[in-house]
């Protein structure tokens, strides 16, 4: 078996004095879509922020493509090929849609071409001159995903991309993630919407109290439904 693209081992993280990650372990292989599932406050978002280096007080090991990144600053981690689509979307109000889209610098070859991105998200092309935050919630989410596709980053960290969106938009985001998979992107998806997660991901990691407590293959999800319900408390 080949080395995983992302290898997280014994990842601990703190907000100030508050210890939120207690030894996260998981692997992501190239081209996979995996989820981090769990209740509110389980440590899913913190895990993404710790991988990105934004949660700066962290220990353990995060190896991306053979390189240890635990001691790096966020901008150097980004340059390795990891990109974050944050939970709050992070659309800049003082930038137009187009400026938002073009903001992240290219870090490597192999990103999606601009016309390919506009094929995926036609709304963004129509509204490219609008102020970024004048878009609807769904369009802002599209923009937040779209702008990390053209940089050449290969590992995408998507933090609750369906949160608060209408079902038809959720479906569109689901199709987008499928497309990203066929384009060869690797995705770590944090989700509360379990049904959405089940429809797009290859594997699921259950996060609870700052640890990965279980891993379920996407194909065996039906057999594990009761267990998952117990974990997620739904």
């Amino acid at each position: 078996m080949t080395e995983p693209l992302l290898k997280v081992r014994d990842l601990n993280g703190w907000y100030g004095e508050s210890h939120v990650l207690h030894g996260i372990d998981f692997d992501v292989r190239e081209g996979e879509v995996v989820t981090l599932l769990g209740r509110n406050g389980a440590g899913k978002t913190s895990t993404l922020l710790a991988i990105m280096g934004i949660l700066s007080k962290r220990t353990g090991s995060v190896v991306y493509s053979g390189t240890e990144t635990i001691g790096m600053e966020p901008r150097h981690i980004a340059r390795q090929g990891i990109a974050l689509c944050p939970e709050e979307r992070g659309i800049f109000a003082s930038l137009s849609v187009e400026e938002n889209l073009m903001l992240p610098p290219r870090i490597a070859d192999g990103g999606l071409a601009l016309n390919r991105i506009f094929d995926l998200f036609p709304n963004l092309h129509e509204r490219r001159r609008s102020q970024g935050t004048k878009l609807s919630g769904g369009e802002q989410q599209m923009l937040a995903i779209a702008r990390i596709l053209r940089t050449g980053a290969r590992l995408l960290l998507l933090d609750e991309p369906t949160e608060g969106l209408a079902p038809v938009i959720v479906q569109q985001i689901g199709r987008t993630i499928q497309t990203l998979k066929t384009e060869g992107f690797t995705v770590v998806l944090v989700e509360q919407n379990f049904r959405f997660a089940a429809s797009v991901a290859d594997r699921h990691h259950v996060v609870d109290q700052g640890r990965v407590v279980d891993m379920i293959d996407g194909r065996e999800i039906d057999a594990n439904m009761d267990k998952l319900h117990a974990y997620l408390g739904v």
């Binding site: 990105m52 901008r75 981690i77 980004a78 990109a83 003082s94 930038l95 903001l103 992240p104």
Partner: peptide, 24 residues
């Protein structure tokens, strides 16, 4: 300009701009 867009973005959210690989 593009440089100005970096500046405006960093004024709003320097952490995210840094996480895009820009030297804030």
């Amino acid at each position: 300009t593009r440089l100005g867009a970096y500046l405006r973005a960093a004024t709003e959210n320097p952490v995210l701009v840094g996480a895009f690989g820009i030297n804030v």
